[in-house]
């Protein structure tokens, strides 16, 4: 994870942000970004309770597991964010730039007015990434962005992540260890604790370190068990 000047996430808290985004935990649409009951450190501020959720969502881009383009044209998909946020500057330029960044421009430049749902799954996912980039987020969260895609599309997404990490902090949630090893600089391993009193299950951060260390010499036994394939 290249850490440039501004975006910086307190490592001990990533666990909880990501945990909040774990698909299995997401029951209703309202909870997707329900970080209200979590304490998140962002830009050095630990408590986000009093911050507009809308503002957090705008700063932290999100790419979902399943591509979810809007049922509109390719252009309108990208332009939606800048429009609702009232961003200044040329919309056309912004759309083109976002599509360039997401390595989709060459494939769609001649059919920007066509429906986004006509694109292939991999193209749709890159469109969603472009859509997130168009609002200039600080951080991009990707929730298993390639799990619904074929291997070739997956490779393209991963290549794209390598491109983008020069400018953005990317947090990716994945169950694919090889993918984590391929794309991440830093890796956090999460597990779950079952409460003794039966009050439920709680996500815990097991270990957070450089990716090479996590996959070769993890400090925690549970991490080692997982990366060597003892469970999971």
């Amino acid at each position: 994870m290249t850490q440039m000047e501004a975006p910086r996430i307190d490592s001990s808290r990533i666990a909880e942000v990501s945990h909040g985004l774990d698909r299995s935990e997401v029951e209703s649409r309202e909870r997707v970004f329900s970080v209200r009951d979590l304490s998140v450190a962002y830009h050095g501020n630990v408590a986000l309770e009093n911050v507009e959720l809308v503002e957090i969502r705008r700063r932290i881009g999100m790419v979902f597991q399943k591509p979810n383009p809007f049922p509109k044209s390719i252009y309108d998909n990208i332009a939606f964010g800048p429009r609702v946020l009232g961003m200044k500057g040329s919309l056309d330029e912004r759309v083109e730039q976002a599509l360039h960044q997401a390595a989709l421009w060459d494939e769609v430049k001649d059919r920007l007015k066509d429906g986004a749902l006509g694109l292939s799954g991999g193209q749709q996912q890159r469109l969603c990434i472009a859509r997130a980039l168009a609002v200039e987020p600080d951080v991009i969260l990707m929730d298993e962005p390639a799990s619904a895609l074929d291997p070739i599309s997956t490779t393209r997404i991963e290549d794209l992540m390598h491109e983008l990490k020069r400018d953005y902090t990317i947090v990716i949630v994945t169950h694919n260890m090889q993918q984590a090893a391929r794309v991440a600089d830093m890796t956090a391993f999460f597990s779950v604790d079952v409460e003794e009193d039966g009050s439920g299950r709680r996500g815990i951060l097991v270990e957070y370190d450089a990716t090479t260390k996590i996959f070769t010499t993890p400090s925690d036994k549970r991490t080692e068990d997982y990366v060597t394939g003892r469970f999971g």
């Binding site: 649409r29 809308v54 969502r57 700063r59 999100m62 964010g81 997130a132």
Partner: peptide, 12 residues
């Protein structure tokens, strides 16, 4: 997923 996508971009 459409609502989520729009929320994720900071729409009210």
């Amino acid at each position: 997923s459409i609502r989520q996508g729009a929320f994720a971009l900071g729409a009210t």
